[in-house]
Design a protein around this nucleic acid. Sequence first.
RNA 1: GCCGCGGUGGCGGAAUCGGUAGACGCUAAGGACUUAAAAUCCUUUAUCCGCAAGGGUGUCCGGGUUCGAGUCCCGGCCGCGGCACCA
Length: 852
Amino acid sequence: MNERYTPSAIEPKWQTFWDRDKTFATSTDQTKPKAYVLDMFPYPSGAGLHVGHPEGYTATDIVARYLRAKGFAVLHPMGWDAFGLPAEQHAIKTGTHPRVTTAQNIATFKRQLKSLGFSYDWDREVDTTDPGYVKWTQWIFLKLFHRGLAYQQETAVNWCPALGTVLANEEVKDGKSDIGGHPVVRMPLRQWLLKITAYADRLKDELASLDWPEGVRVMQHEWIGRSEGAQVRFQVAGHDAALEIFTTRPDTLFGATFMVIAPEHPLVERITTPERASSVKAYVAAAKNRSDLDRSAAKEKTGEATGAYAVNPVNGAKIPIWVADYVMMGYGTGAIMAVPGGDDRDHEFATKFGLPVIQVVKPEDGSAVPTGKPYTEYGIAMNSGAYDGMKSADMKAKITAELEAKGLGKKRIEYKLRDWLFSRQRYWGEPIPVYFPVETAGDPRKGAAHTVRYDKPIAVEEKELPLLLPELDDFKPGDDPAGPLARAVDWRFFQREGKWFARETNTMPQWAGSCWYYLRFMDPTNTKEAFSKEAAERWLPVDLYVGGAEHAVLHLLYARFWHKVLFDEGLVKQPEPFAKLVNQGMILGELEYVVETTGEKVSDEQVEKREGKFVLKSDPTKVVDARAHKMSKSRGNVINPDEVVNHHGADSLRLYEMFMGPLEQTKPWDTRGVIGVRRFLDKLYTVATRPRTDAPPPEEALRSLHRTIKKVGEDIEGLRLNTAISALMVLVNDLSSLNPMPTTLLGPLTQIVAPFAPHLAEELWEMLGNTTSVSKAAWPKFDPALCELSELTIPVQINGKKRGELKVGKGATEAQVLELAMADVNVAKYLEGKPPSRVIWVQDRILTLVVK
RNA sequence: GCCGCGGUGGCGGAAUCGGUAGACGCUAAGGACUUAAAAUCCUUUAUCCGCAAGGGUGUCCGGGUUCGAGUCCCGGCCGCGGCACCA
């Protein structure tokens, strides 16, 4: 036994033990209740683990260890989201195969995770790039394909020349790629899409059933963006053509003073008058070439009149049709009726181009609408013929029904959600398991002229899965939007029954593997199925899912979509995969102090606070900005968890990250703070290794123990891990004066420390003479009677101000406490001899007296 | 602009149901031990007046409800995150 706590000796010992003993193998005991505790699995980057990873992982580890001790069969797995761009980029630069890089990175991540003592069942490790996993990702794709949920389309896509690939709308920010920040342009390309819109309503409605952060639910709700309105037909004057528009406000039809159609609208050319043709043509051409960056950066409205007019179906008014890029082809019908009296954007446009504005809705409360501004709320109809005086909502329903009766319109529901662009022109992803007939006279592998019939896709047979990637030496995308796989001609083209076929050269996006990994964890070695029905029934849904808020929409929406498809296939019985979701907050770098005027960095010792602001001690006129920033290589504020482990041990790192503050909160790292939890472990070690006695413990110590057992359990269940650790510190402080140490206290103490600092707990547990892991022991029970303080300090308030304190036994009655209070000198001073006019006694908490 | 989250000592945070604001930890100061340093231990640490007892002030700001408000209500300010021509 060491004199002092030495994590570098203890931690490897127990990590090896857990590995050999398979301590954390998932229980197969069907009589136990189940708990599925899941982390968002990482992309194993070359940089290794950063301190953000262990935050969520420690939290779930604590929960998993606690639940095992409470008698649950716990599924707590870990794996790798290992397809993805960085490995491919690295391959392009160095020629190293992504598979090699990926394997190295996984090895690093795994070593680091193991060094932190997480209780994963490593026999269930999954790797999305493993052929045994890819097989089932492709298998699920085929399910979607056969259900008509995967289809091809020539679409204007976000082509990123620098990355040599197409990006989903979600991966483009302000016209630049989310990864790398390269420019993105629009170009038409044949693409695979998944029909997530077919599930829009279910994805929206079933959000309500989830125990998820409000913010994430709201974000998904808005992303889906359902709006109810009407489709209305406007005849184009002098043409045998009509403009179909979508509006959520058919009640403002009388206020439509012009129409706007998107530059890409099919009617643009046909209806434009000869006089306007050249201007419109130029505008449309310019709009097509404008990248997303330009479109989103442009504040000012632009547009051109087509010279054509439309007829308002409700009043026969002839109104001009304009082309403008503030109307997008991808939403609704690509055409709108513009109501400048009731819509900000239309108002701005009307103002710029001098178009008339008619107010058709007034506020219900009779208040005036400020002139020069549209009134966009619901209210009372005006300037709307026979509808004047109706409430907006009523008029909306009535006018829609009337238009429908005349065949001029109908109710319509629109979504912002678009179908999911599912193909990527990359190498390092799952090949899409589809091939196409090839029309050719020769051998296309040798360059014979050929036509690939992309319109006749054929699914790869299930028994041929997995369809693996070909070996390549050159991973460059090149200029060919078909992607690097197009160059692997021997892989791409094959003959069957004398006919030539070509494989799909697009691969799946990185999201594919992460859409269902939580299902594979339930049954990771199954070679016959993606997962068995029994496993699904045993483990679904995921009871606790912890990960970063950056996945609020994409991953979580895609995974829910796939899950619902599998639900419809009858493969899973729950409509939703993740019952409870928690986002861990980001860990920022250390606080930095910067002089506002000069930008000079200073240390916290050079700074003091005056009137709510930090200023330089040496020159208090200089204001210092104190803030923490996101960790980044360029800023040089990255904390490497390995260094913390080397210095203080994994238990200290785990404890510190949990002690910093609430799990969900963003919080700055403070290296000096680590010493606090390290001292706690040192103290615990000292207390637990001092001479012991079998004599019963003093009552106060016993009460402290029971109070802490209760609090730690409750706090873990509520994921309040910071206060749980604080409670453990209080307990150890309470026990530190006991010498010799009563043995009966040490067992439970070790057990409740174990989820947080498992290595040290195992060591102490062994010293107590146990021969099996502390994690095999049942969670200690507390005695409610021992959880309360025996003597309470009750404050006495007079007219809301605290004027005294009384020591009373728990359960003291109002009369008893009042009598004591009246006897208190200080209380008496404030009563001035008068009896209190009112006495408020909150049992065991506070006594308030009111005197007039 | 809209939506979500938040604002408490020098710092991270606690106060879970409207009931002693500042638990726990860091930092800082003083002391013990030591030849010395580190480590450890002890004391103090919201702020102002006071030797003390005690008292004043105090949870972003301004109002309100209440015996009592960090907590509830109304109005504002600031920070962070998301969305952003979606008709």
